[in-house]
Design a protein around this nucleic acid. Sequence first.
DNA 1: TCTATAGTTCGTAAGTTACGAACTACCGAA
DNA 2: TTCGGTAGTTCGTAACTTACGAACTATAGA
Lengths: 129, 129
Amino acid sequence: MKPLTHPSIEDVTVEGLLHALSDPVRAAIYAGIAAADGALSCSSFLQVCDRAIPKSTLSQHFRALREAGLIRSERHGVEMRNTTRCAEIQQRFPGLIAAILSAHSVQAAERAKAARRKPAAAKSRTGVG
Amino acid sequence: MKPLTHPSIEDVTVEGLLHALSDPVRAAIYAGIAAADGALSCSSFLQVCDRAIPKSTLSQHFRALREAGLIRSERHGVEMRNTTRCAEIQQRFPGLIAAILSAHSVQAAERAKAARRKPAAAKSRTGVG
DNA sequence: TCTATAGTTCGTAAGTTACGAACTACCGAA
DNA sequence: TTCGGTAGTTCGTAACTTACGAACTATAGA
């Protein structure tokens, strides 16, 4: 088990951030962490989340977010505490994260609305926002 | 040769936009189109761009941008006129595109600065912004 | 030490991407 | 019309990435 690696804020790239957040599961995880007022663990995300996601897949998603520089993870006893690095990213790329989260929530709202109209066709929801 | 397909603005997704712009070449193309005050063709992008990109690859990138809903392409004689769909996207996801382009340009500026300090280590530039 | 919980790593199958070669589409000249 | 050139697309393949189950490591408590 390698020690957790976090890029320094100067090594964070826009491509990396966008790629990390272009996956609906990762966007949902990130939004979950941002919303959780302290920190969020993998397993508590699973409880919150509507879909069943395999542990290994979830672990890779958390790693992707961590390596993109979006979150900071630290072991705390048996579980992992994940917190966002919003403040640092906001300083380097002002408005970026806020705009993305806001766009995701606009979309989640639209999808929820569409699902209310025709519930049978409710396929892939992001759960972001 | 299939007729060009453009998603309607309601079918544009945040994931799709982020994924499309998470590639440095596509981000550079998009920034080029946004900057070009009328429209930009594949070949004129190649002239502007600092790297040599194979035609087929470039074609796929333009298609990716088109299918993500970021640009509108129309044949005009022998060449393609590509324009951005900023206005529509701005309406649906306010601030998103602006924040991304601005972040890319922050990063491009940093890279240019770093390259000036030690020109030998200048590796991958985005050319965005 | 034994058991349970939380998360990681590995191997593999499935999906995506990049690129050259061959193609289609359009224009202008002969 | 036919020829030749330019602009862009499609196809096939090799390289890369991703998802998931099985097996693993790490920590806590009985």
